[in-house]
Simulated scan of single mutants.
Amino acid sequence: MSGTFSQIYIQIVFAVKGRQSLINNSWEEELYKYITGIVQNKRQKMLAINGMPDYIHIFIGMKPSCCLSDLVREVKKSSNEFINDKKFCSRTFSWQEGYEAFSYSHSALDNVIAYIMNQKQHHHVKTFKEEYLKMLKKFEIEFKDEYLFEWIEDE
């Protein structure tokens, strides 16, 4: 009997609406665990999750039957509700529309995981905007400025 075998590794990035720094250190670990649960309940493998107060990176091993846009929509919708139900923020929390997704080979796993897990140290040197534009160019993704994240002016 034939089977389906695959190696699909996707890094997903999405930001807090308006790029507000609303993800607090005091509850980010709980948020990451909650999002990990969503990914695992959708039968995907969480490889790494981390971020900054205004965005997160998620790195997953994805099955070919998974629809990436459906998974991201569920993660964002459910985590919005989780954050607001827990009253982690003094105002209503929401993720910004859209997301970025980048695929990697198996040989890049360790480097991508290390990169994601070191986000806070990494951003002492480089802004999110610099990092983001570099990734789009590295992956040769065509884009229009008006469809990019809302940037915080001091970046």
Rank of each mutant, 00 (worst) to 15 (best):
D145M: 01
E146P: 05
N118M: 02
F59T: 03
I49Y: 01
S79T: 02
R19F: 04
K120L: 03
S94C: 14
K33R: 15
I83Q: 11
H123W: 03
K33P: 03
E140P: 06
F93K: 05
F149P: 08
I38F: 12
S79E: 02
E153L: 00
A48T: 11
K77D: 09
S2I: 03
I49W: 00
L136Y: 03
T36Y: 03
Y104M: 00
K138T: 13
K129I: 01
C66L: 06
I38N: 13
I56G: 05
D70R: 12
F102C: 04
T127Y: 15
E150P: 00
E28G: 08
E74M: 00
V39W: 02
K144H: 14
L47E: 06
F59R: 04
K86L: 00
Q20C: 09
I35P: 11
M1N: 12
I23G: 09
I116H: 01
K137P: 08
I113Y: 02
F59S: 04
Y132H: 12
K77F: 09
T127K: 11
T36L: 01
K86P: 13
Y55S: 03
T36P: 05
E30N: 14
I56C: 07
M46E: 10
N80C: 15
H106L: 07
S94T: 13
W95C: 06
I12C: 02
S21T: 14
N80S: 15
I58S: 06
I10T: 15
N25P: 12
Y147K: 00
K45L: 12
M117I: 04
C89R: 10
R19S: 14
F128H: 10
A48R: 09
E28F: 11
E142W: 10
N84M: 07
I10F: 02
V13R: 05
F149W: 04
R91S: 14
I12S: 02
N84T: 14
K129C: 00
Q44H: 05
